[in-house]
Design a protein around this nucleic acid. Structure first.
Lengths: 119, 119
DNA sequence: TTTATGTATCATAATATGATGATATATTAT
DNA sequence: ATAATATATCATCATATTATGATACATAAA
């Protein structure tokens, strides 16, 4: 009997979610929902630096959330699986109901300048 | 026209995923899949310290992933919404197909001692 | 072959996150 | 009222993660 999944599996799953758990990566995934894009396009859309974009893409690729295909000098990226889109959609739906709570989640989060600390 | 969701919404969603993106919190969520638990039970199941458990529970609560109800001196926690369980299930399914990739995701992750670095 | 373009890699510095121990608070039991 | 139990909070340190800038490595164009 095991009430919770084994530790290793939990770690893997946490890792998977961490792929989504950064606004830079999530921005990339959102962009790819609409279809494949090359790195230059992703850089343009997200406004991130090229190296940062590339670093995050590597993470996403190694974590299995996106797949890449070399096309001449371009690297075309796309979501690796429909379930990636599913997760995004479910999260969006859930979010619309709990957004207020998320805003108030102070312990781990948002850049300082966003919180309007009441003195 | 906006190709990607606005930055604020992406931040919120990333935050939501980050709720799942830590093995301590994910372990708690997994445990709660089987039904409500109080803090003492969660501490026992996860083996984490009481304060650490409580800190993570706060995060989960404030992020809207779990709900708490005071019962005498016990605080009963449960998943706040079916979609939380849905996300866990979808992730598990996706994971079974991409587990290998996740293992190899080196840039951001796993405790050092787990990777078996080939020299 | 030189130059320009697209992408990847790496070291580093800044920041965010997580675990711990001490302590506070609340509820129940004696 | 005192003690015991259940939970929450907080400061702090260690660690992990992120963004950046420099640079390398391709591919394609001139």
């Amino acid at each position: 009997m095991q009430i919770v999944a084994n530790a290793e599996s939990v770690q893997l799953q946490a890792k998977l979610f961490r792929g989504f758990g950064d606004s830079a990566r999530l921005g990339i995934l959102q962009a790819l929902k609409n279809g494949p894009l090359n790195v230059t396009e992703i850089v343009a859309i997200t406004g991130m630096s090229q190296s940062n974009t590339s670093n995050h893409l590597r993470c996403l690729r190694e974590c299995g959330l996106v797949a890449a295909e070399q096309q001449g000098k371009y690297a075309l990226y796309r979501l690796s699986d429909d379930r990636v889109g599913d997760l995004l959609a479910t999260a969006e739906s859930l979010l619309s109901d709990v957004a207020r709570g998320i805003y108030e989640c102070t312990r781990y989060n948002l850049p300082r300048d966003i919180s309007q600390e009441q003195v």
